[in-house]
Simulated scan of single mutants.
Amino acid sequence: MDQENTNITATNVVELGGKSWTAYFWSGIFAIVLLLLSVAFLGANIFGGLIVLSVSLLIIALRFYSIKSHRLYMDDIGVWRSSGILPWTKGTSGVKWRDLDEAVFFKSMFSWMFKSYSIRIGHRFTKDSEVFLDHWDRGDKAVMAINARHQELVRANALH
């Protein structure tokens, strides 16, 4: 569900974190390879190498800022993920509390060691509206907070 053009004003916004450092790993490897190729071009042709280096640095910056832009938060309406740095990539999607099935995180030795989890925030009625996040910093804690808040609302009979 997109929450971009709504007139509903949410209160009690709780930030649930962002991407872990592990999300930057493959982008870091990509950056190193791209910079090494740029340096090779610099040795062959200064002008062409500077162009390749400039474009490479722009691509690397966009990748890192794109990863950094991912945020997860919950409010009185539901749980939302926002991301994007360029106007055509910005957006928010999420699940309203009344439609939330459950939030789960996936365990592995890697996720346990680095505290970087994959999260699925399920929709009761459709898989298309689910939110899936990988490499989430302390995703286990975020999932526990989401499920605790959902249980509070269910017990208070506050979901309409």
Rank of each mutant, 00 (worst) to 15 (best):
R81W: 05
D75G: 08
A44V: 14
Y117L: 06
I77H: 09
S69V: 10
N147W: 05
A31E: 04
S93D: 00
I60S: 13
S93E: 05
N45W: 07
W80I: 13
P87F: 04
L72F: 10
Y117S: 00
S66W: 03
A61G: 08
T22Y: 02
F47H: 10
K115P: 06
A10F: 04
T126C: 08
V143Q: 00
S111V: 11
S116I: 11
A10T: 08
I51H: 07
A10K: 02
V39C: 09
A103S: 06
V95P: 00
H135Q: 02
V79Y: 03
A23R: 07
I32N: 05
S27P: 03
Q151S: 04
V104Q: 05
A40W: 13
M109Y: 07
V33K: 04
F41H: 06
T89E: 04
F25V: 15
V14Q: 14
R63C: 12
K141Q: 15
L86M: 14
L53K: 09
T92S: 01
I67P: 00
W88Y: 14
G78C: 00
E15L: 05
L37R: 01
F132L: 07
F114K: 07
E102N: 14
D134Y: 08
N147P: 07
V131E: 00
S118I: 08
F64T: 03
I51G: 08
V104L: 09
S66I: 06
D140E: 12
V55C: 08
V95I: 15
V14R: 14
N147D: 08
G91W: 02
S129R: 08
F41I: 03
N45I: 05
H160R: 12
M1K: 12
R155Q: 15
M144A: 11
R81V: 08
L57T: 01
F41D: 05
R149T: 03
S54P: 07
H150V: 08
T92E: 04
G18T: 15
L16M: 01
E15T: 10
L159D: 06
I46F: 13
G78N: 02
S38H: 10
R63K: 13
